[in-house]
């Protein structure tokens, strides 16, 4: 086919919503390049998912089915997609930057002597006269952006970061479904995946909290948590945290915000000593208002903050607690 191929993600017949962001990216890239966009879905018993895709503006929908693709394994996915890509020879392969894609896409690209351009936050077409797009990635935990270009011949593999493209932007249309049956054998699948499970019942529902005070590694030590707890109490807020705080056991896991924790959208998210790594931002970007207190003016949290304070949290937080208490009194 040449053109753009988007690899969608599903588990047990349910889409990973990020797939539609990748689909939007694929459609837009194809339009810019004046080429066509197709999509692939892998699994077993996925006819209804393929039909759903067939209502999108795509040239083809590849329904890649095999019993051994029922549950995800890197070995199964790499082998199946390698075969599909050899047959379809897409110029660009777009994927959502999910945990699953991180698990198999680098190996898939390696099969083609290519390198995945991972976790892309924008696709630009700035240089006139050349068709090769620029892919923007973040470096240094979001403190720096970098422009990358694909310089080899062969398929260009790109994974797109959550929230970069809007799923609602996917254009409707009509596509032909093509069944693709990869050659797979049980010996090829070297790992045995178990069922997904959760560690403990969730007793705190941060997603309903109107005000969240969230604390990060800037707090330094567990013993210092008292000052944010007091602020949180003064505001009548729920206390939340970045991952390292929960990893250390300073606050329970269920108070973690981010891609491996909860997703929140309060009226106010007050980020204290949090740098704003993307895995944290995806969990709180939808907040109505964000206030960030951080001593580093380059901290990426300021990119999503409505109000920012560059300063020492140990000086500012106690003053803020006092001011809030006074305002409420």
């Amino acid at each position: 086919m040449s053109g753009v191929l988007v690899v969608m993600e599903q588990r047990n017949g349910a889409w990973n919503r990020m797939s539609f962001e990748a689909l939007a990216a694929g459609q837009q890239l194809a339009a810019k390049l004046g080429t066509e966009c197709s999509a692939a879905v892998l699994g077993s018993g996925i006819d209804s998912l393929a039909s759903e895709l067939a209502s999108k503006k795509l040239t083809k929908v590849y329904a890649v089915q095999h019993d051994l693709l029922k549950t995800y394994t890197a070995d199964g996915y790499v082998a199946a997609l390698e075969q599909l890509l050899k047959q379809t020879s897409a110029d660009y392969v777009l994927l959502p930057h999910t945990y699953q894609v991180r698990d198999f896409a680098p190996a898939l690209a390696t099969r083609f002597k290519q390198v995945l351009i991972s976790d892309v936050i924008a696709i630009r077409h700035d240089s006139e006269g050349t068709t090769s797009p620029v892919f923007v990635r973040q470096l240094l935990q979001g403190k720096l952006n970098a422009d990358y270009r694909h310089t080899a011949t062969g398929p260009c593999f790109v994974s797109v970061q959550a929230g970069t493209f809007r799923a609602e932007a996917v254009e409707d249309g009509a596509a032909a479904i093509e069944a693709f049956a990869p050659q797979l054998s049980a010996e090829q699948i070297r790992s045995k995946p178990g069922e997904p499970f959760r560690e403990s019942a969730q007793t705190v529902d941060l997603s309903a909290a109107p005000v969240i005070v969230s604390v990060g590694r800037g707090i330094g030590e567990q013993d210092n948590l008292g000052i944010v707890e007091e602020l949180s109490k003064a505001l009548g807020a729920e206390l939340a945290a970045s991952r390292p705080i929960c990893d250390n056991g300073w606050l329970p896991m269920e108070r973690q915000v981010g891609s491996s924790g909860q997703t929140v959208s309060p009226k106010l998210y007050l980020a204290i000593g949090i740098s704003g790594a993307i895995q944290h931002l995806v969990g709180m970007k939808a907040s109505k208002a964000v206030i960030a207190i951080n001593k580093d003016e380059n901290a990426p949290i300021f990119e999503v903050a409505d109000y920012g304070v560059v300063g020492d949290l140990f000086e500012i937080v106690p003053e803020l607690t006092k001011a809030v208490q006074a305002a409420k009194a």
Partner: peptide, 12 residues
Amino acid sequence: TPAIALERVYLP
């Protein structure tokens, strides 16, 4: 030669 190239970096 590498398959991809970093062209430039800049502040976001």
